[in-house]
Every structure is written in C-alpha cells, then in structure tokens.
Amino acid sequence: MNKDNYLKVVVAEDEYMVLMGIKEMVEELGHEIIGEATNGKKAVEITLKEKPDLLIIDINMPVLDGIDAIKKINELYPMPSIVVTGYYNKELIDRAKKAGAFSYLVKPIDEKDLQPAIEMASARFEEFLSLRKELQETQAAFEARKYIEKAKGILMDKYNIKESQAMKTLQKKSRNNNKKLVVTAKEIIKADKLLQIDE
C-alpha cells in the first residue's frame, strides 16, 4: 500500500462479527482503524473527536441511524463516508447521498468490493472539496466585484472622472498602499460613509 493512500478509518457497525470483518479487511488493505462504534450517536462522537480520513457506517444503527449520523458529522466536519446496507434500497441510498455519503456497500462485504468503494469515496470527496473551493472563490470574486464597482462610483462622483480613470485611481491607490484592490475599495466606501455622516 502506497503511504500516500494510507487512511485513518472509523468503523460504525452494530453487528459485532460484521464490525470485526470490516476492521480486518480495512487493515489488510493497509489502513488504520482509529475508532469503532456500535450505535449512530457514538459514531458521531468518535468521528468528530478523532477526525478520521474515512467513515464506514451501517445505515441501520441503533440510537441514531447511519444516514442521520453522516448528516450530523458533515455539518461540522465534512469527510468521505461509505454506507453499509443489508440490501440495496434506492430510496435509502439516495437519502445517504443527500446526507453526504460518497459510496455504499451491500452486505456481505468483500475485500474486492471494499477497495474500490474506498477509492471512489476518497475521489468523490476530493472532487467535492475542489468544487466547494471553486464556488467559494466565485462567491468571493462576486463580492469583491460589488465593492470595487461601488468604490469606482464614489471616485467618479467625487472627482468627476470617467469609469476607466476611477479604476486606474483605485489600482494606483491599491499598489501604493500594498493592499488588495477589494481592501482599498472597502476603505474608500467606509471613508465616504464617514464623510456623509460628518456632513
């Protein structure tokens, strides 16, 4: 097993023999078990405490079912998870996906099924993180654009200049102060508000 692919794993399963079987297979694949739980509530507690690289959890868990456990975990610590089910049920699998599961396994679990499920969950999670980052950057760019446009408007009114000249003034001020354009724009907006109060 490539050290880069080594994962710290939490397993949550209420059937002892199945739990032991999953643990053994995970370890045989070169990963480390850092926590185990026999009910959904405990799975949430252990996962949030240990912060593993992967959670393998049965859907039908006592106290709190596996899907609700994944949902709770992902609200606080998004991470890849694999749901385990006794039989294929499209409705349950769809619910699990919505909660944030990235792969699923149907019992009895086989090592040849576990390996691709782990790889799929990890790959989908990386994809999810990449998309989330892209979305956050797009949102940040959109927010920055709003501040820059507002600051340009203030400069155009104040100095009776055209938009292109206002942008050049903003860029020059940003360079001179060694600050990001959006930071300079916010400062101009703030200064303008203070002037309006003083008036």
Rank of each mutant, 00 (worst) to 15 (best):
P80I: 01
K162L: 13
V106I: 14
A121I: 15
L76R: 15
D14V: 14
E45P: 08
A117D: 02
K150M: 12
Y88F: 05
I82Y: 06
L181W: 03
D198A: 15
K3F: 09
R95S: 04
I57W: 01
A117F: 12
P78S: 04
K173Q: 10
I82C: 03
K112T: 13
V18T: 10
A117R: 03
Y104G: 07
A43L: 01
A99G: 07
A37S: 13
Q165P: 00
P78R: 05
I148M: 01
A141Q: 09
S103T: 00
V183S: 04
V9M: 04
E143N: 10
R145P: 04
E199T: 14
N178Q: 08
N60G: 12
K90W: 02
Q115G: 09
L55R: 02
E163V: 08
I73V: 12
K150H: 11
E187W: 08
Y77I: 15
V18S: 03
V44F: 01
M25Q: 00
I148C: 01
T169F: 08
L54Q: 03
N5T: 11
S164E: 05
E143H: 10
T85W: 01
D157K: 11
K107R: 08
R124P: 11
Q136V: 15
Q136K: 13
K90T: 14
E134I: 15
I109S: 00
A151Y: 01
D65K: 04
S174L: 06
Y159H: 14
T38Y: 10
E111K: 14
G30Y: 07
E50V: 15
L55F: 13
K193R: 14
G153M: 01
D65W: 03
T85G: 04
K193D: 09
R95V: 03
K190H: 14
P108E: 05
V84W: 00
A43Y: 04
E27T: 15
K172H: 12
N74P: 03
G35R: 02
T85H: 01
A121C: 13
E119Y: 13
F125H: 09
S164W: 07
V106Y: 07
L170K: 08
L48I: 04
P116C: 09
Q136Y: 12
S174F: 08
N178G: 09
R175E: 13
K3H: 06
I67S: 02
D4V: 13
L155M: 06
M1Y: 14
P108Q: 08
I197P: 02
K107A: 03
Y87C: 09
K8I: 03
N176E: 15
A12P: 05
P52E: 00
A101T: 10
L29W: 05
S81A: 13
I109R: 02
K71E: 06
N60E: 07
I148K: 00
I57E: 01
E137G: 09
S130C: 11
L195A: 10
L19C: 05
L129W: 13
Y16C: 04
A96C: 08
A141I: 10
A43V: 04
